[in-house]
Nucleic acid binder design. Structure first.
Lengths: 152, 152
DNA sequence: TATTGTTATACTCTATAACTATA
DNA sequence: TATAGTTATAGAGTATAACAATA
């Protein structure tokens, strides 16, 4: 069977907010951790890209530089990231995840995955595979190509 | 092939935020319309459930009553909703979408769907069908069961 | 001049706590 | 007492505009 782009779009518009709302709620429910989704994503990106610049993070998340600066401020204030001068270009900033940041990131990831996995346990394995395949198709389509979401 | 609950969870956690970010950005980009995602969802719900109470909306969106009250305030202030006394129970409130609200809702929906559909045009029809099926599996799992997302 | 980042400001989204009014 | 809703307050997330520092 086939589906039109419009029908597919309709489904995404209906279902995606439901899923993200659960993810967000579960992250905030982890009271010992308390990472919001964008905080989690920033931390995760810097963890995999040690020494990333602010604009690297902004581009990855699809946020404007000021928004990203604020986001990073919060993570710095909580001791989850450090911000150092970039060795060769003094305009730039070099971000790294602290040991505490890694602990928190891991705890948040594990808690959220456990919660989601529990909700998916009742789904047939084949159907789970379909979900995985669908996500893998969507990922490159919606991954950030460098422009902040409000770009002209 | 089969996928574990954990792997499925990992994919959802990675991809869902990307999709929702695009939806949100596109909605805000419609400068003549300017509905955020929760505003869109509220308006959409009341449109299909004329006379809904505040708690009906809150339960559907998975928000607390104060959050919903604020959200509705904004839509009232912009003339997209009306709030009247419920005929038989004077504690309750009866929400309806105005003509302007319906116009805005329709414009926002159409714009967002068109945008998403364009992004999905390059996907194989069969793959789109897979995405639709995945969304239909996820929907009941993540649909609101009446509790606000931060419930104890 | 162009790039990197921050500050100032403002708005939406969301929660908890405390309250009012009605049932 | 229980239910429906609002107000007060606070914090995260996001944007645009204006700016400073470096290249």
């Amino acid at each position: 069977m086939a589906a039109s782009p419009e029908e597919t779009a309709r489904e995404l518009l209906e279902v995606t907010p439901l899923v993200l709302k659960e993810i967000r709620a579960e992250m905030r429910r982890q009271t010992s951790v308390e990472l919001g989704v964008p905080q989690f994503r920033s931390l995760n990106f810097v963890d995999k890209n040690q020494g990333a610049s602010l604009l690297d993070v902004a581009n990855h998340l699809g946020l404007t530089p000021p928004s990203t600066s604020r986001l990073v401020d919060g993570l710095l204030a909580r001791g989850l990231l450090t911000r150092q001068d970039h060795p060769s270009d003094r305009r730039r900033v070099s971000l790294t995840v602290t040991a505490k940041g890694q602990r928190i990131l891991e705890a948040s990831r594990k808690g959220t995955l456990t919660y989601l996995a529990a909700k998916l346990e009742g789904v047939e394995p084949n159907d789970r595979e379909s979900i995985v395949r669908a996500m893998k198709m969507l990922q490159p389509i919606f991954a950030n190509n460098g422009k902040p979401s409000g770009a002209k």
